[in-house]
Amino acid sequence: MPSVLVFCEVQDNKLKKASREALSIGRKLAEAVAGELVAFATDRSAAGDAGRYGAKKLYVAGTGSYNTESYTAAMKAAIDQSAASVVLLGGTSNGRDLAPRLAARLNVGVASDVDRLEWAEGKLRARRPVYSGKAFATVEISGTPAIATTRINAFPAEESGQGPAEVVEISAPPDSKTKVVETKVAESGELSIAEADIIVSGGRGLKEGANFSLIRDLAHAIGGAVGASRATVDAGWIDHQHQVGQTGRVVSPNLYIAAGVSGAIQHLAGMSTSKHIVAINKDPEAPIFRIADLGIVGDLFTIVPALTDEVKKAKAH
């Protein structure tokens, strides 16, 4: 039976959203060829969630926290055991670190950051944004297994209503050429833009760093993450972790609200595939309006606080 193997990551005792999304599209691909969805994790506690999103088996390697070489070896062991014909990894930092290393080890094809996946004449076909979202490439991945990393928020996470996955312990030779000596958590407690469903971004229109509080208040009220243009990051108003765009993070949330952001091509590169885009800018000619679903021509200093109030009222209902 053909199987689809999904690399899963656990955070706070739950599967990361990227992993849940990858499992969901993986299940569709497996079902289409009457195959089986299986998963890999380094933590048995993932069995419940993995099953909930359709995985029948969970291959568990006791490799501990992330490290490129040992995870490559462990994933290879899981691929060998499951005879997977497709391997999917959510497009997290670790997924994107691991996929190319694994593809090179197995001498197979890999497509990164894909936002569509389907079978076409027995081959895995993927669509991926290229040229900073100015075009889409459709590629066919050959070889067994065919590997892809999935763009976060591109595939909806859908539960299958199934019980926990059966845990299969695997072992892989320890192999590590790198050592993580420290992990520095930046601005703890803040929602990361990488996985957020809603992002509220501020640009140079905020005039000064202290005014980012307007953006934070709105983000907080609506339950979203804080994004930023490069101009504000370069000005030192906010940390680089928040930067959206070509040299920041590429995001595709359900809702992207941009205030005082002009919409330079390098910014659009990071957010143009967002599902719903609202822009607030005082310049009616600002390029951001070309991709906004709802554009408001006006002063962010009056509109953003009013919006925060209205959102709070709507939430209170």
């Binding site: 609200i257 609202v278 607030i280 009616p284 309006f289 070309r290 991709i291 906004a292 679903d293 709802l294 554009g295 408001i296 021509v297 006006g298 002063d299 009056t302 509109i303 606080p305 009013a306 919006l307 109030d309 209205e310 959102v311 709507a314």
Partner: peptide, 18 residues
Amino acid sequence: GGRKIDGADPLAAAKEIV
């Protein structure tokens, strides 16, 4: 289908966004 509206009245704009 993108729409652009005037935000001269902040409250009306906020309500439309919501």
